[in-house]
Design a protein around this nucleic acid. Structure first.
Lengths: 106, 106
DNA sequence: AACTATTATCGTAATATTACGATAAAGAAA
DNA sequence: TTTCTTTATCGTAATATTACGATAATAGTT
């Protein structure tokens, strides 16, 4: 009955699932896209770009941060968010292994 | 409140989000892992490997299939599921663009 | 100190996901 | 045909996510 069984999977499986979950919403994809191409990456800027309220954007940013895909450094009264290369590299390498071991069975 | 705003994002952003959502659960990561390394890929086999009921596994398989990450071909009374290379390639190339355009701003 | 700007958090309503048992559907075997 | 095997779907309960307004927190400005 809806009780989560995440404990029954390996840490690695959960880690990749967490990365994927962080990208599992178009708003968070849009945030990442913006951070990848922009240098002016205050949260305020992002709010202007997205069709969402400030509190909702802040929530999405926290999820990306918790997953390790972005990091934020305080800059006076605002926060400078940018992509966290380490997280991206780990996620990409995890995904890469599937392509390597992939076999066609049908 | 809580009304989804996915229409307000681009088709590409939603597409990547859908791929990511398909992998946003450790059970589905485990399924993909299994399919990547195994040749005997009936659903029944997968149920034995996972700590989940048959109906739950079937639901997860459907989500992976809808996202385009796996495909299933009917084989008599059972179904042979395997990875769908096209889907993986598209997802990987979408993710790849972030690494390419990624800039350090902090 | 009082005010402004920026971001985070709380409360909460709407919606979506997760999981299971029960049951249906369809082909294989008796 | 009847039975068995395998997978899908339905119903439903528990949990999680999404979104917003209101409010708090913190730093800068006047």
């Amino acid at each position: 009955m809806g009780l989560s069984k995440k404990d029954e999977f390996t840490a690695k499986q959960n880690r990749l699932a967490d990365y994927a979950k962080a990208l599992a919403h178009p708003a968070r994809v849009a945030i990442v896209e913006y951070l990848a191409t922009s240098n002016a990456c205050m949260c305020g800027d992002i709010v202007e770009v997205l069709p969402l309220s400030q509190s909702t954007v802040s929530q999405h940013l926290r999820e990306l941060k918790n997953a390790g895909l972005i990091k934020g450094t305080i800059d006076g009264t605002s926060v400078c968010y940018c992509l966290n290369e380490e997280g991206w590299n780990e996620m990409q390498s995890m995904l890469g292994t599937f392509l390597v071991t992939m076999k066609k069975c049908c």
